[in-house]
Amino acid sequence: MHNATVTSKGQTTIPKEVRDGLGLQPQDKLNFTLLPDGTVIMRAKKRQLADLQGIAGYTGPAIPVEEMKAWK
């Protein structure tokens, strides 16, 4: 278990072992979910929208948004 202290400004430092284990880099985002029993779930948000490119199996050329809107 790793511990951290909260400052008077509500800030804390994530222990190095945890940062390394999650592969966190500067500017990565963290999401916190507070459950009714007081448990907190922290998730690292490391994906960018560009990371999802190709997830639907489309392998053709990039299509500009303006052309997509014309399909309506």
Rank of each mutant, 00 (worst) to 15 (best):
P64D: 04
Q27Y: 12
K45G: 06
K16I: 06
K16A: 10
I63M: 03
T13A: 08
K72I: 10
Q48R: 13
R47N: 08
T33R: 06
T7H: 07
L30I: 09
M68Y: 10
I63Q: 04
V65P: 15
K9N: 15
I14R: 01
K69S: 12
N3S: 10
S8V: 15
L24Q: 01
K46T: 11
M42D: 09
E17L: 04
P36A: 09
A70T: 11
N31A: 13
I41H: 11
K9Q: 15
D51S: 06
D20T: 12
L35A: 15
T5D: 07
H2T: 11
G57M: 00
K69M: 15
N3C: 08
E67W: 06
G23S: 14
L34G: 03
H2K: 13
T39I: 06
M42N: 09
Q11P: 01
T13Q: 14
T39S: 08
Q11F: 10
Y58C: 00
L52G: 01
S8P: 05
R47P: 01
D37A: 02
D20M: 12
N3P: 04
L52T: 07
T5W: 09
V65I: 09
F32R: 07
F32L: 05
G60R: 01
D28N: 10
Q11E: 14
I63Y: 14
F32C: 06
Y58I: 00
D20V: 09
P64Q: 05
K46M: 07
N31R: 15
L52H: 08
P15H: 13
D20I: 07
I55F: 09
I55W: 02
K69P: 01
A62N: 15
E66N: 10
T39R: 11
T7C: 03
L49D: 08
T39C: 11
L24G: 00
L30G: 03
K46D: 04
G54E: 02
K9M: 09
A70G: 07
T7W: 08
L30P: 00
L22C: 01
A56L: 13
L52S: 02
A50Y: 13
G10Y: 02
A62V: 12
M68H: 14
R19A: 02
G60A: 02
R43G: 08
P15S: 03
I63P: 00
T59M: 02
K72F: 04
K9L: 11
Y58G: 00
L22G: 00
G38L: 02
K72M: 13
V65W: 12
T59V: 08
P36I: 05
T12R: 12
D28V: 11
R19Q: 07
A70E: 13
P36M: 03
P26G: 13
Q25Y: 10
T59E: 12
G23R: 07
I14G: 00
P61C: 05
I41L: 04
